[in-house]
């Protein structure tokens, strides 16, 4: 596992966007070889999306041969509701870039058969050749996507009933009326994310410091689902200083000492996977 500690939230956004850009460029996608990404929503990745849009507008990157799969979506929330993840993705990312709408996938929480929708989603990911880079964020309780505490670490895409805590936390997005908060969501499973070639998790803010500690300093535990990625062969966590507040000094120093190596990961001519031909990835 790699842990990249950035000084500021802005630098987290820049670092993660540069990493995504570099991975797409190194992959060198074309009409026969698409780069497949898993995408999160929420406040944490906003800065990264902004940077990616900036790079796109500056002509540094294209999403023409990129396919995306979003992590989750609420059930029975209108697609164009400002809190829906369709709305978020369209307005914060898709409408600004050159992605073909056919290649942008988001679970349909209004599908008549939700179980079939989830199965179909897994099938589509397989059909696309699996996910090359799954980007995620986490909640303060260490959940990844809607895989809340206690979720199976081998779960697949499915319907989840949201915990009372989550409903209460989300009420602020629905006029402070908990009755308006969707009670269910569709989400990829921990196992779905584990299948990706690489997993990149973005964590910022002191309110997520305890979750980061649980993610990397304690054992794998389904009460902190993000900890599952300790067992993933290629996990990259990008965080800011605030998110490290609950880590041991030793842990922080260890990863900071590697920062020169990490910096190479986003350099134009740096190798993401040292001493390995990119074709082997």
């Amino acid at each position: 596992m790699r842990l990249v500690i950035c000084d500021t939230v802005d630098y987290v956004a820049e670092w993660s966007a540069k990493y995504v850009m570099k991975r797409i460029k190194d992959f060198n996608p074309n009409e026969n070889k698409y780069f497949v990404m898993g995408l999160p929503t929420g406040g944490t990745p906003l800065g990264m999306y902004k940077k990616l849009i900036e790079y796109y507008k500056a002509g540094k990157i294209s999403f023409k041969y990129v396919k995306t799969f979003n992590m989750d979506e609420y059930v029975d929330l209108p697609r164009d509701h400002p809190e829906s993840y369709h709305y978020y993705m369209y307005n914060n990312f898709f409408k600004h870039i050159d992605i073909d709408p056919k290649n942008a996938h988001i679970l349909d929480g209004n599908a008549p058969d939700l179980v079939a929708e989830c199965e179909e989603y897994e099938r589509k990911i397989k059909e696309a050749g699996g996910i090359e880079l799954f980007i995620g964020g986490i909640g303060p309780d260490g959940h990844i996507a809607f895989n809340e505490p206690g979720s199976s670490l081998v779960s697949r895409t499915r319907v989840k009933t949201l915990a009372q805590d989550t409903l209460e936390a989300n009420a602020r997005f629905f006029g402070n009326d908990i009755n308006k908060v969707p009670k269910q969501a569709l989400t990829v499973g921990v196992g779905t994310v584990m299948d990706a070639v690489e997993v990149m998790i973005v964590i910022t803010g002191s309110h997520k410091a305890f979750a980061l500690y649980k993610a990397i300093e304690e054992g794998v535990n389904h009460m902190w689902t993000v900890s599952a990625f300790q067992q993933h062969p290629r996990t990259l966590i990008i965080c800011d200083e605030d998110a490290t507040l609950e880590l041991r000094v030793k842990t922080v120093k260890y990863f900071k000492a590697l920062s020169a190596v990490h910096r190479k990961l986003i350099e134009e001519d740096g190798a993401v996977f040292p001493r390995r031909s990119l074709n082997d990835v």
């Binding site: 697609r79 164009d80 369709h86 709305y87 369209y90 307005n91 898709f94 409408k95 073909d100 709408p101 056919k102 942008a104 988001i106």
Partner: peptide, 23 residues
């Protein structure tokens, strides 16, 4: 914001993106 037009009317690009899935 961009402005999208078809058949002489303004259209909602979000709906076109997700439902019609066309450029």
């Amino acid at each position: 914001e961009d402005l999208w037009v078809r058949n002489g009317k303004f259209v909602n690009p979000e709906k076109i993106f997700y439902v019609e899935k066309i450029m």
